[in-house]
Design a protein around this nucleic acid. Sequence first.
DNA 1: CAGAGCCCTAAGGAAAACTTAAAATAGCAT
DNA 2: ATGCTATTTTAAGTTTTCCTTAGGGCTCTG
Lengths: 226, 226
Amino acid sequence: MRILLAEDDPDLSRQLKASLQDAGYVVDHAPDGEEAHFLGDTEPYDCVILDLGLPKIDGVSVLERWRRDGKTTPVLILTARGAWSDKVSGFDAGADDYLTKPFHTEELLARLRALVRRAAGHAQPLLVCGGVRLDPRAARASVNGEPLRLTSLEYRLLHYMMLHQNRVISRTELVEHLYDQDFDRDSNTIEVFMGRLRKKIGTERIETVRGLGYRLKPLHNEVSEI
Amino acid sequence: MRILLAEDDPDLSRQLKASLQDAGYVVDHAPDGEEAHFLGDTEPYDCVILDLGLPKIDGVSVLERWRRDGKTTPVLILTARGAWSDKVSGFDAGADDYLTKPFHTEELLARLRALVRRAAGHAQPLLVCGGVRLDPRAARASVNGEPLRLTSLEYRLLHYMMLHQNRVISRTELVEHLYDQDFDRDSNTIEVFMGRLRKKIGTERIETVRGLGYRLKPLHNEVSEI
DNA sequence: CAGAGCCCTAAGGAAAACTTAAAATAGCAT
DNA sequence: ATGCTATTTTAAGTTTTCCTTAGGGCTCTG
C-alpha cells in the first residue's frame, strides 16, 4: 500500500511519515505543490494525503488538475481548524475525505483504512468465456469487443449459461431458471432461443449434447484465455 | 437522490430536512434508532445521515447491523464535538464520513455530494457522459457546451442516470430514488419524463432495454466501452 | 433406415414502451 | 390571498418489440 504525503510542515511530516510506516504503508513525501503534482502524476499511489496550505501550488489546484486528468486515486485533505470554506471547495474539487488539524493519528489511520477499502471495493464481477463477455452490473454483453444486442430472454439465457459454462445444462434446468413455475413443458422456446443466441455469439460456442442439453464453452483456439 | 436523516433533535431535524430538500434531495426522517434501522433496511437510500446519539438504539449499533447485513449505502455520521474516539469506532463500524456538531450546512452538503458521487464510482465532481455534462454543485447541465434548460425532475432524473451511466436502471429504481415512500407504482411518469429528457439531450443517448429499464450512454462515436 | 431429437423460419398476438394532450398541482408574483 | 405560469401527473391511443407457437426439414443414433 503506497501513499503520497504532501505536507510542508517538516515536524508534522516526519511524525506522520513514521506513523504511516509503522502502520505498514510505503510513504513518499512531497514538501510542496509542484512536487506533489509531479509525483501524483507519475507514481501509482493507493491514496494521497494532501495538505491544502502547500507552497508553490496550493492543494486544491493540485487536486483539480489530477481530477481533470482523470486520476481517481482517493485523496484525503488536511486543513487548518476553522477553515471550513476550504473544505467545501476541496470536496467539490474531488476530495474523498477531510481531516482538520490538529488530529489524532489514530483517526487519520482509521480514515485511511476506510478510503483504501472503498477504493479497492470497486472490482466488478465480469463473466468471461473466450471472446464472450458479460457484465451483469451493466446488463450488457459483447463478443470480441463488439457489443451484443440481446433481448431480455436472450440475455438471461446467456447469463445463466455463462455462470455455468463448460457444464451441460438441461432444457429443464434452463426453463426452471428462466421462467416461473407454470410453463408448458413441451414447448420449443428454448430451442428457438438457442438458435437466436447462436446466431448472435457464434454457433460453435454452444454445443448440443443430444438427449441432455447444451454446453457453453470457449472456442478451441480461445481456451488458453483466462 | 433520496436520503435518510436519522436525528433526534427536532429543531435540527427540521432545519436540516428543509436545507436538504432545498438542495434537491428527497428526505425521509427517522427520530430514533429503531425507526432508522427499519427504514434503512427497507428503503433504498443513496445516503444516510446518522446521528450517533439516537434514542432506543444508538447510531453505531444501527450502522453495525446494516453493515453486517451487507448494506453498502454510504453513511455520514454526526457526532458531538470532541468525541473523537466515537469517530474511530464509527469508522471501523463502516462509516464513510464524519461531521462534528456544530457544523455549517454548506459543509454537510459538500460532504454529501462527495459521498454520493464516490458511491457511484466517480472521482470527478463534474459528471460527463459523452457530450453531456452535469455539474452537481451548480445544478447545471449541458450538451455539447450548450446549456440545458431542465425542470427539477428532469434534472434529478438526468443526475441519477449520469451517476449510474452505462448501467441499466429499472423504472422501479428510478421511482425509488426520485420520490419518497408513497408513490403510485403503476403510473407512466417515468416514461413521460424519459421522452422529455430524450428530446432535450438527444434520443440516442438513452437506450431502452425492454423489460429491464433504461441506460444512459455516450453516443457511438463519442466513446466505446467493454 | 426409422424414429426421436433437434433446428429453422415465419407469423400471430400480447405486452411494453412511446406520444400526445389535457387535467391537476405547485410555485410565484402581484 | 388570488390568479397566472410552469411543472408534474394522468390517461388514452399508437407504435414497436419480441415471445411463443407450429410445422416442415434435418441429423444423429440404435
